[in-house]
């Protein structure tokens, strides 16, 4: 399995082949970049991938992968996937609603600029401080919790709501998921030409018919692609989860964090497998995203 180490991705593999055709001097210009990427992006990732299929003494094995299929690790993956999916789907729907309201809903034009700027800020406001903001809002003594209890008599705790839970984390993630959706989908909505709507209308179509037969199919790849991106975005989020829940919620990034810190699984190579599983899942989501975006761009040329 040692030979696997040389099979790094396309960009570097083509290098020796191309060198013979173009001037080697040209390659000198991209050498620093190639070295950097190899050392600090590709090799570390390969280390994880290879490690996932190795025993501590370096021989090939599938035991690590098999080791993932224990109830507690599967549960961690499952809840991670559920949270990521829920926050991605809700983020898509709500973000689409907000963006559609501004682009198509006939709201004043000046709202656009501030909304997009604000989305830029909010989508980057993740991690530890975001967790604090939500604790201060929906935590046990958060402003909204207290307001609902004292003013409306609604006790969130009694209703079963807990910020350190599936729904709590989902709500928190939505804070950056919705604006990310707004940022990505607004250009797509702008891309819906007025003439398409008019052409459909003059051909006899009603509003819903236009949406069902034209607008929605055109947007569909973008929507699904953004969903994949939001999913990956939530799946890899570590800081928000740790700052919000400590280690009380058993999701994959927190499990991996604890494993790196103190080998809680008691098997270093099981950690590799855990990380490898994360790459596989975000990899699938992103491949979907790239593929679907290419499709929608082909249409909108």
């Amino acid at each position: 399995m040692q030979s696997d180490k040389t099979s790094v991705p396309a960009a570097t593999v083509t290098m020796p082949v191309r060198t013979r055709r173009t001037l080697p001097l040209n390659w000198l210009g991209v050498l620093p970049f190639a070295i950097f990427v190899t050392l600090f992006l590709i090799m570390p990732t390969m280390k994880i991938v290879v490690g996932a299929f190795q025993t501590p003494d370096g021989s090939l094995t599938l035991d690590n992968i098999r080791g993932l299929f224990t109830p507690s690790i599967m549960a961690a993956y499952w809840i991670s996937i559920k949270i990521s999916l829920a926050s991605a789907i809700l983020g898509c729907i709500i973000g689409f609603g907000v963006s559609a309201a501004v682009v198509l809903g006939g709201l004043p034009q000046w709202i656009r600029g501030p909304l997009l700027t604000f989305s830029g800020v909010a989508s980057n406001f993740a991690g530890v401080p975001l967790a604090f903001a939500f604790l201060a809002t929906l935590g046990p003594v958060g402003i909204l919790t207290v307001f609902l209890k004292t003013q409306l008599g609604l006790d969130l705790r009694l209703l079963g709501f807990n910020l350190l839970s599936f729904w709590g984390l989902t709500l928190t993630y939505l804070f950056f998921q919705i604006p990310l959706m707004v940022l990505i989908i607004t250009p797509a909505l702008d891309g819906l030409k007025r003439e398409w709507r008019e052409a459909a209308e003059i051909l006899g179509a009603s509003g819903p018919q236009y949406w069902r037969m034209v607008a929605f199919p055109i947007l569909f790849p973008s929507l699904l692609g953004t969903l994949a991106l939001l999913f990956a975005n939530a799946f890899g989020a570590v800081a928000t989860a740790i700052a919000l829940t400590g280690s009380s919620l058993n999701i994959v990034p927190i499990l991996l964090f604890a494993q790196i810190r103190g080998d809680v699984l008691g098997d270093p190579h099981l950690g590799y497998a855990l990380a490898f599983g994360m790459i596989v899942i975000t990899g699938i989501a992103n491949t979907l995203y790239i593929w679907l975006r290419a499709r929608s761009e082909r249409w909108l040329k």
Binding site: P9, A10, A11, V37, F40, L41, I42, M43, P44, T45, M46, K47, I48, G51, L229, A232, F235, G236, V238, P253, L256, F257, I260, G271, A275, M278, I279, T282, G283, N286, I290
Partner: peptide, 20 residues
């Protein structure tokens, strides 16, 4: 493609690789 990889590979995985 390479520059987009950090969006695909979670930061925690990359740093895990660094440490090892």
């Amino acid at each position: 493609f390479v520059t987009l990889l950090p969006l695909v590979i979670p930061a925690i995985v990359i740093v895990f690789g660094y440490i090892r």
